[in-house]
Design a protein around this nucleic acid. Structure first.
Length: 818
DNA sequence: GACTGAACTATACC
DNA sequence: ACGGGTATAGTTCAGTC
């Protein structure tokens, strides 16, 4: 039988001691296909240099004798071949040791302690990754397959009949074909419960949303008119069973939740157990399986379970405006829609008339989740195609893991044997290493400036890695002819001239990124945009990867050299800019801000071109922007210019604010808004007069208690569990208060509080902390002295001292009132 | 008990 | 455990006078 096929989900099973990949996907008509396939299983034994043929042959004979009987399974070495390979860029002779079962490769490796063998590699990729590398059946690409249809056959123990698919075939041959359009079925879901703690309360309702389906299932009936999307069941057990039935009937390719790895799915599992019903969501009626540990993931056989929150965290969060990754904020930013307004209460406290609102709230959460998923699907698809790992993993992995996936799936072009994952001891050793010197930040001279130009290096660190060939395999202990070198941390680091596979891959990624970005300019579409973005993220993560303790290709020397070369590049460029007698205002890592002076914008662009013609390798400087005005302030402590804190305004009055309190979520809204307004005012006007007037009005309002309490709420994240804190800061007190009142609060939550007046004079801020709904009056002195004034003081300070005096007077008189 | 610098903590920049 | 280092700033804590 022949058919077109796109792989969506992968897993594997053992049959008669051997591993078989099971790939679930669709054909071009939309039928669900299950493909069973196998591949050779092997590891690499890298031989010592200069071994004689006879010795190698003798070794091969020895290795071929290895047989293991572990974990109730027989594995033996089935074949040994000698190959010329490359390992970390060096030519090596290596034995390809074939064995029966992938899971036993580690034990086989343990048996290879022969003196002739230098290293053992390639046994720790996981069978699925190994299979994809070996067979090149890559997720989300189209293939034409031919194979034998398994129809109630006893082959593989009747696996075809256990799986609810249209066709199950044993793969015989395949070829890659052109991409076709895929319309996978998505289904979003969301649950509402009585308790937040896993499994401790009852599940009240579950919503399901696809493009043509909207449903809320609940056992909480209301006497009011039932909305048509609501379906009643008799109890929680039936609710879970009904949910399973709907998922089975709709039979989506992807089941999507928001935070569902750690909440919805495990909650369902826990309640199913409690009610003694099966959460048989898998295509083979199996229940979801969860990984242990801090980072829980929930896997359903044959259906790809996606927790969209995780993908948002790795792929989008660094470019987002949202201050938290809550469904509400994220939906606002991406969809312009928000959660339904409904205050969740325990079901016993919900009034008869409120249930309808609760149903709607529950339904809308799934609508938002579905909307987000649709929006992010192109990115997820491109990520998966590029990293070549199953979408289940790619959608959850951090960028460092994604970089590694990309490397592992592209090693073959370099004939490279994969490096091993660091073991536990090695990781703790790496984590203890001393920090290396990082980026250079130029101390600005505080002031208000006109006509500011900003240049920056495109993918600075990525370009440096490629230009100077910085990687584990190119790092040299001693200098070689023409090797690249740089001094940092009192040591000179050398890197080979001949390009290594890591910089080479990165070079390709940068070129591809450029290519798609260019195409995007001429003919924009979502796929190109997604692809360009995925490559951009890969480039930006390559530097962090090499310095990351968990990396296979960990190389702190390469990371340190990357930072050192980047420092050199920015300083050299600054020197060139200085030579042209431009005044440099600021610089951080890969950007330089300077005054345009009397030169025109065209002349600046010409100058940029000139700078670029003299840059080494693929280093490239680009225009970040021309700005009408910009301000830099002093640090709070002294007169030195503050780094990482500035504001710019362009011709269209668009602001670019960095580091100021107004962009920090742990300051109250009033302070942030006041600061934002005075920054805008000053940058628009070119002076401080109007801004100062505005601040005076606000201070007056504050003193007259005319400010809304909501504008004074301070939000701080609980970064660890309450008991772990050594210092008891205000937000810890707020969290303790919440605990006392049995308001759920845990690590990672944003804690809200305000600072209130107290009867007696209290010294510590934490003694004045009150929760938002706790009765009390806001503490005028605190909000003046610790929020408003600190946010505006050093902005006015950059003007003449008269203004400064007014502020100081103001401060004294206002504070003197108490 | 007031003062002061160090330690702890959160968050931002690139 | 699930890129890196640089930087500001508030608040508490612990020691000194």
């Amino acid at each position: 039988m022949k058919l077109d096929f796109i792989p969506l989900d992968y897993d594997y099973f053992d049959f008669e001691g051997r591993n078989y990949a099971r790939i679930i996907g669709r054909d071009s008509k939309g039928k669900r296909i299950c493909v069973i396939d196998s591949c050779p299983v092997y590891l690499w034994a890298i031989l010592k240099d200069g071994l004689k043929h006879e010795k190698i042959n003798k070794l091969i004979k020895e290795i071929e004798k290895i047989e293991l009987d572990l974990k109730g399974r027989r594995t033996k070495v089935e074949k040994v071949e000698l190959h010329e390979k490359s390992f970390l860029g060096k030519k090596v002779n290596a034995l390809k040791v074939f064995a029966t079962n992938y899971k036993d490769l580690h034990d086989v490796a343990d048996q290879l302690g022969f003196p002739e063998i230098e290293k053992r590699r390639g046994y720790d990729l996981g069978f699925i990754t190994h299979y994809i590398i070996e067979k090149k059946i890559i997720p989300m690409h189209w293939y034409e397959l031919s194979g034998e249809v398994l129809n109630n056959s006893q082959e593989f123990g009747g696996i075809d009949s256990a799986f609810d698919v249209d066709v199950c075939i044993k793969l015989e041959s395949f070829r890659a074909i052109e991409d076709k359009k895929l319309n996978p079925k998505f289904l979003a879901y969301d649950i509402e419960t009585d308790e937040i703690k896993l499994g401790e309360g009852e599940i009240l309702m579950i919503s399901l949303v696809s493009d043509s389906f909207r449903k809320v299932i609940t056992w909480k009936e209301t006497k009011h008119k039932k909305p048509e999307y609501v379906e009643y069941v008799k109890d929680e057990a039936e609710l879970i069973e009904k949910f399973v039935k709907y998922v089975g009937d709709i039979s989506p390719d992807l089941l999507v939740g928001y935070s569902s790895d750690s909440f919805d799915l495990p909650y369902l599992k826990a309640r199913a157990e409690k009610n003694e019903v099966n959460l048989s969501l898998g295509l083979d009626k199996s229940q979801p399986k969860f990984t242990r540990g801090i980072n829980i993931t929930g896997k359903i056989k044959g259906i790809v379970h996606i927790d969209i929150l995780k993908f948002i965290r790795t792929a989008y969060s660094q470019y987002m405006q949202s201050e938290t990754l809550s469904l509400n904020e994220v939906a606002k930013e991406f969809l312009g829609d928000s959660k339904k307004d409904f205050k969740i209460k325990h079901s016993s406290k919900i009034g008869e008339g409120d249930w309808e609102k609760y149903y709607e709230y529950n339904l809308h959460d799934s609508i938002l989740t579905f909307g987000l998923f649709e929006k992010m699907w192109p990115d997820m698809l491109e990520f998966t195609k590029i990293m070549q790992e199953p979408i289940f993993d790619v959608s959850r992995n951090g960028m460092s893991k994604n970089v590694e996936s990309y490397i592992l799936h592209n090693l073959e072009k370099f004939n490279e044997i994969p490096e091993k994952r660091p073991m536990h001891d090695e990781i703790s050793e790496r984590r203890q290493r001393e920090k290396y010197e990082g980026a250079f930040v130029f101390e600005p001279a505080p002031g208000l400036y006109e006509d500011v130009v900003m240049f920056d290096f495109t993918s600075s660190y990525g370009s440096v890695i490629v230009t100077y060939n910085l990687s584990k395999s190119t790092f040299l202990e001693k200098p070689e002819k023409d090797s690249y070198n740089i001094e940092t941390g009192g040591k000179k680091l050398y890197f080979a001239k001949e390009i290594g596979f890591f910089p080479e891959m990165l070079k390709e990624i940068i070129e591809k990124r450029k290519h798609y970005k260019e195409e995007l300019k001429h003919k924009p579409d979502v796929i190109k945009k997604a692809r360009s973005n995925a490559f951009k993220l890969l480039v930006n993560s390559a530097y962090g990867y090499q310095g990351f303790f968990g990396a296979r290709y960990y190389c702190p020397e390469a990371a340190a050299a990357s930072a050192a070369f980047a420092r050199k590049a920015i300083k050299d460029t600054m020197e060139e800019i200085n030579k042209q007698e431009f005044k440099i205002i600021y610089s951080d890592t890969d950007s330089i801000a300077f005054l345009r002076g009397k030169k025109s914008e065209d002349q600046i662009l010409k100058f940029l071109k000139e700078l670029n013609s003299n840059l080494p390798g693929i280093m490239e400087l680009e225009l970040e922007g021309f700005f009408k005005r910009g301000i830099w302030v002093t640090t709070r402590a002294g007169t030195a210019g503050a780094k990482k804190k500035y504001a710019l305004i362009d011709k269209n009055n668009k602001l670019k604010i960095r580091g100021f309190e107004t962009v920090r979520r742990d300051w109250c809204r009033l302070a942030r808004e006041v600061q934002n307004r005075i920054i805008r005012q000053i940058l628009e006007d070119g002076n401080e007069k109007n801004a100062l007037q505005y601040v005076k009005e606000i201070i007056k309002k504050l003193q007259q208690r005319k400010i809304n309490k909501e504008d004074l709420i301070i939000r701080t994240q609980l970064k660890k569990s309450i008991s772990e804190y050594k210092a008891v800061s205000p937000h810890v007190i707020a969290a303790r208060k919440m605990q006392e009142r049995e308001i759920p609060v845990s690590q990672g939550n944003l804690v809200e509080y305000y600072i209130a007046e107290t009867k007696e004079k209290k010294k510590l801020v934490r003694e004045k902390v009150k929760l938002p709904d706790e009765a009390g009056e806001y503490n005028i002195e605190y909000y003046l002295k610790n929020q408003i004034l600190p946010a505006v003081e050093n902005i006015f300070q950059i003007f003449n001292s008269d203004v400064n005096d007014i502020i100081k007077d103001k401060k004294q008189t206002t504070l003197g009132d108490f």
